[in-house]
């Protein structure tokens, strides 16, 4: 499977979502992470070179060349070893993440919301897909993982506070069934169903040592992830479920062969998830 990543690396060093496409930040980071998980450094230097060029002056990363906006993919870049990404680039990415407040968590928005009597304000700070919008499950999970890594390297009260707030955001946005969907657990008061892929990635963000969150709080999510595992509809979802469950002490074997990776990113995720503890460590160590 790693051969597929090699053959789909673009001449510019990045990876596309689909074979033959142009390079994007997200699949490039996942392909690099797959290389770390599998111990294969083919194309790594070129991939990192390409990635460094996507960093913007504000420290964040653009999702692809030509997009004049830093987005959540900054959290993905921050998962890479700082020494490889470049210490300055890594620090800029972490700083960008720490400075990004969801639009509905700002003091001004919360005051306005309180005055209007609406319920759209968020006390907990997750992460949005891009600045100026609300927080959602996936970017919050990935940014939490990135900052938790940073906290292990360079502990700080600010980072710790943000991680705790983000995890509270995730718990507050958990669906009634115990899992996570994109981040809206109810629609007009009616419970919404979780998705397997977001349940897996959010569960991963609770892996390892998590101060302030006990195992009992996560138990319903583990149970939901186990249930999703038996009816998993995609390779991407299976990979995230494997990672999330393993991080919480419930290792799974490889996903069914019938689940075909659809994108380069799916291939990379499958490699990471299939690397056992080493794959989980990519996110948690």
């Amino acid at each position: 499977m790693i051969d597929s990543l090699h053959s789909n690396q673009n001449p510019d060093g990045g990876w596309p979502y689909r074979p033959g496409g142009s390079s994007w930040t997200e699949p490039t980071v996942f392909a690099l992470l797959a290389g770390y998980a599998s111990g294969d450094n083919t194309g790594r230097a070129q991939g990192l070179d390409w990635l460094r060029k996507q960093q913007r002056p504000d420290g964040g990363f653009a999702p692809k060349p030509g997009v004049e906006q830093s987005t959540w993919v900054t959290a993905l870049a921050a998962l890479l070893p700082p020494v490889d990404l470049g210490p300055q680039g890594h620090t800029g990415a972490v700083r960008w993440l720490l400075g990004l407040t969801p639009a509905n968590s700002s003091y001004l928005f919360r005051l306005q919301s309180w005055l209007k009597g609406t319920t759209t304000a968020e006390a907990n700070e997750g992460w949005p897909w891009l600045p100026g919008t609300a927080a959602w499950a996936t970017p919050t999970a990935i940014a939490t993982l990135a900052l938790a890594k940073e906290q292990r390297r360079n502990p700080s009260e600010r980072i710790q506070k943000r991680i705790l707030s983000a995890r509270q955001f995730l718990l507050a946005h958990r669906c009634q069934d115990g899992g996570w969907n994109h981040g809206a657990m109810k629609a007009l008061g009616i419970d919404a169903r979780s998705y397997p892929e977001t349940t897996g990635s959010a569960l991963l963000a609770f892996g390892g040592e998590v101060p302030g969150v006990d195992a009992a709080a996560i138990a319903p999510s583990v149970a939901r992830a186990e249930a999703w595992w038996t009816e998993c509809p995609s390779s991407e979802a299976a990979s995230w479920l494997m990672l999330g469950l393993r991080a919480n002490g419930h290792a799974k074997a490889a996903p069914p062969e019938t689940l075909k990776p659809r994108t380069i990113q799916d291939v990379a995720l499958r490699i990471i998830a299939g690397a056992g503890d080493r794959g989980t460590e990519i996110f948690l160590a």
Binding site: P63, K64, W72, W136
Partner: peptide, 11 residues
């Protein structure tokens, strides 16, 4: 790929 899932910027 640019705006996320959901495309909350539209809201």
């Amino acid at each position: 790929g640019v705006y996320g899932w959901p495309k909350n910027v539209l809201h």
